[in-house]
């Protein structure tokens, strides 16, 4: 498998990272090098192997249905690049 320019553009778009048009080719080559490296895995027969779900061999713990957090709108928005009246303010979303 190799990443052509269109694929790199699509992946960059999915990842929301701006990549200049003239960088696509070179970036594709870098990524191809890594993809080529990881494709060694094709040598391994995994036909009867279950994927690992977690190295932690335990069950998911459940917490009680109690309200333990909230009432801290100022703290929640304190680091925001833009906020107003405890709302996060972001560029206009067009629906």
């Amino acid at each position: 498998m190799s990443l052509d320019k269109d694929t790199v553009r699509r992946v960059a778009r999915l990842a929301r990272i701006e990549v200049a048009e003239d960088r696509l080719e070179a970036l594709g080559q870098e990524l191809n090098q890594i993809i080529g490296f990881v494709e060694q895995l094709d040598e391994v027969d995994t036909s009867s192997v279950a994927p690992m779900t977690s190295v932690a061999k335990q069950k998911l713990r459940w917490r009680a249905d109690e309200v333990t957090s909230g009432g801290q709108a100022e703290k929640v928005t304190a680091n925001a690049p833009a906020s107003d009246m405890n709302f996060f303010v972001v560029p206009k979303v067009v629906e």
Binding site: T7, A15, I17, L41, V44, V49, P51, M52
Partner: peptide, 28 residues
Amino acid sequence: RRIMIGTYVLSAGFYDAYYLKAQKVRTL
């Protein structure tokens, strides 16, 4: 680079070939 690789290996049509395969190898 790593975000791009990660996005690529999880994207439609590649999940089984990469991510699932790697998690199986991890079991081994």
